[in-house]
Design a protein around this nucleic acid. Structure first.
Length: 575
RNA sequence: UGUCCGAUGGUGUAAUGGCAGCACAGGAGAUUUUGGUUCUCUUAGUCUAGGUUCGAAUCCUGGUCGGACAACCA
């Protein structure tokens, strides 16, 4: 497949079995080696359908599906829908779409915690029968007060030692709907002075008279997360239940509930990893919701949002996100990933696949004085220099062009090799031109028009085509250009850690006022046929992606990410 | 104040008692009809104090710093 010797050697050493494992892979390989759960690997991705998925979830998705793929296992999609007051069908569909778009499949294994309400209820009765659970009639406030604090033990509920019969009767009446919301709860009887507060007789069921998006009015009691999650894992045959670090403290409870019901050799195991944090980004669902609700962004899929749908609309590719997840690795220490690593993964993919086009975002008129008035030439241009199979297109060229305002200076600094009086540049895919003079607006002093001549032999394939010219600039033919709306996005926050708030401020104070700038651009005609099936690179500018707001004859493009720009960096450092 | 978890260049992540490596970011250069891409070189790291050991990022002890935990949320 590859007869380059050096390359195949490198490949081989890369695939050596000694390649290092992350801590999750180590645990899994150890479990497989020990024949745990019959050597099976079965993971799950368990979103709560109460919001949209973001890049942090993408890490979890890549981990869960990736690990299963690597060890020939399976991954279930399971909606953790145990709280009907917060959850909605709307989110279910969005979540499914996002996971599919990322490139993962749960086949037919789409489950809901609510599928297990009957089984969960049966097990709850068993716990009551075993004297391990009781109905508590106290108010939420009272229960909370009795729970003690982090440093002081709690005290036992006066209802803690009700008889099994009384508990069973009460629990059945809870289920039957005889009590209003909050009248009583079912609690596990564990230890009110446990140093881990979650073990101080945690609540298993509460009364909520609200219709559920799947079970409708069948239930008016709903299980809490801790009581539902491990049991759901057990029902589904999950082997490795991977979650984020904040659930670490829940693990003893996860294990306690399993202890009460597991009768088999098989048993799922919870393992925690550190969630993703990104510089200049917030990941909290609550805060993202606030951005949407209060109109700081235009919706969950606003291209500035770190949501999967936002990134998709912005022009991110699934490949770039998967590669990113691979690069950041996984561990148990808190981390903040530099957003430039995400952008690197994005450019890396886009560079390979993006269709090149010419567009002028900030136009300046250029006239080629020795080019005939009425002549149009069609110049062949490679669609993608990284991929010859992408083919070519022809770009119209004529006497009057638009060029980028940045590509001309009256008094250029050192190392500026674009256009200035007397200089020569190459027009990309076209001719070498020389600048002779320019015209300014007498009112404003702004440059209006640049006058050049072209070297007719300097076209690709021409006699002087290979002359060394330092600068190449992009252009569009004025009379053939089409207009498009361009949305220039920048980071949403001006502070690397927007959640690190000063006294009396909130993350809202750190919003970047320039996170969106809308302009009009002149584009080569081929962009009239732009489609969301393609990603585009406007040469020398950046990557762009067609927005659904586009109208017939008027495309709208989102700037996905700019090209790396070592010139602006260099000229800034000079200052 | 208690319990649990964690600590390796600026940011991530390897090294599983034996040469501290890789990626991003930063810097310098080469190539280039994109100041893009690609390529080369380069700056920079084991929280701290002790102990075990021929040998410690790794094992032990103390400290320091950071995180999690007191919803009828997940």
């Amino acid at each position: 497949m590859n007869d380059n010797n050096e390359n195949s050697i490198r490949e081989d050493s890369f695939n050596e079995p000694s390649a290092s494992l992350n801590f999750l892979e180590e645990i899994i390989e150890e479990d497989i080696k020990n024949g745990k759960n019959g050597g099976r690997v079965h993971t799950r991705f368990p979103p709560e359908p109460n919001g949209y998925l973001h890049i942090g979830h993408a890490k979890s998705i890549c981990l869960n599906f990736g690990l299963a793929q690597k060890y020939n296992g399976l991954t279930n999609l399971r909606f953790d829908d145990t709280n009907p007051t917060k959850e909605d069908e709307e989110y279910v569909d969005a979540i499914k779409e996002d996971i599919k778009w990322l490139g993962f499949s749960w086949d037919d294994r789409e489950y809901y915690a609510s599928d297990y309400f009957d089984q969960l209820y049966q097990w709850a009765e068993k716990l009551i029968l075993d004297g391990k659970a009781y109905v508590d009639d106290q108010s939420a406030e009272e229960i909370s007060r009795q729970r003690g604090t982090i440093t002081t033990p709690g005290i036992e509920s006066p209802y803690r030692n009700r008889s099994v019969e009384e508990n069973l009767g009460l629990f059945r009446r809870m289920r039957a709907g005889e009590f209003p919301d909050g009248y009583c709860v079912l609690r596990a009887k564990i230890n009110m002075s446990h140093p881990n507060m979650l073990m101080r007789d945690p609540i298993m069921y509460r009364i909520i008279h609200t219709a559920h998006h799947r079970t409708g009015d069948k239930w008016c009691i709903y299980p809490m997360y801790d009581y539902a999650h491990g049991q759901s894992d057990y029902i589904e045959g999950i082997t490795h239940s991977i979650c984020t670090l904040e659930f670490e403290i829940h693990r003893p409870l996860y294990d306690w509930f399993l202890d009460q019901i597991v009768t088999t050799e098989y048993r799922p195991k919870q393992i925690e990893f550190a969630r993703l944090n990104l510089t200049y980004t917030i990941m909290s669902k609550r805060k993202l919701l606030q951005l949407v609700k209060d109109g700081y962004v235009k919706g969950w899929d606003d291209p500035r949002m770190p949501t999967i749908c936002g990134l998709r609309r912005r022009g991110y590719t699934p490949t770039s996100i998967r590669n990113f997840a691979e690069k950041i690795g996984v561990a148990r220490r808190d981390n903040v990933i530099d957003v430039s690593l995400l952008e690197f993964s994005l450019r890396e993919d886009l560079n390979k696949i993006a269709q090149r086009r010419l567009a002028v975002l900030n136009p300046l008129q250029l006239i080629i004085e020795n080019f005939p008035e009425d002549k149009t030439e069609f110049l062949p241009a490679a669609n993608n220099p990284e991929d010859t199979k992408a083919g070519i297109r022809k770009i119209p060229f004529s006497r009057q062009l638009w060029i980028e305002r940045d590509d001309f200076m009256i008094n250029p600094p050192k190392k500026y090799y674009r256009l200035y009086p007397g200089s020569e540049v190459r027009l990309k895919y076209g001719y070498i031109i020389k600048c002779h003079r320019y015209e300014t607006d007498p009112q404003t002093g702004e440059v209006k028009t640049i006058y050049c001549t072209y070297d007719p032999e300097s076209k690709t394939g021409g006699a002087t085509a290979n002359r060394k010219i330092k600068g190449t600039i992009h252009w569009v033919s004025k009379k053939h250009a089409i207009q498009a709306e361009i949305r220039l996005y920048d980071r949403l926050f001006i502070k690397p850690d927007p959640e690190d708030v000063a006294e009396g401020e909130s993350f809202i104070n750190y919003l970047n006022p320039n996170s969106l700038k809308i302009i009009n651009a002149w584009c080569e005609p081929a962009l009239m046929e732009a489609t969301p099936a393609e990603h585009y690179q406007f040469e020398r500018i950046g990557y762009f992606y067609l927005d659904p707001d586009s109208r017939p004859g008027y495309p709208v493009f989102n700037r996905t990410v700019s090209l790396k720009d070592s010139w602006s960096k260099m000229s800034q450092n000079e200052e």
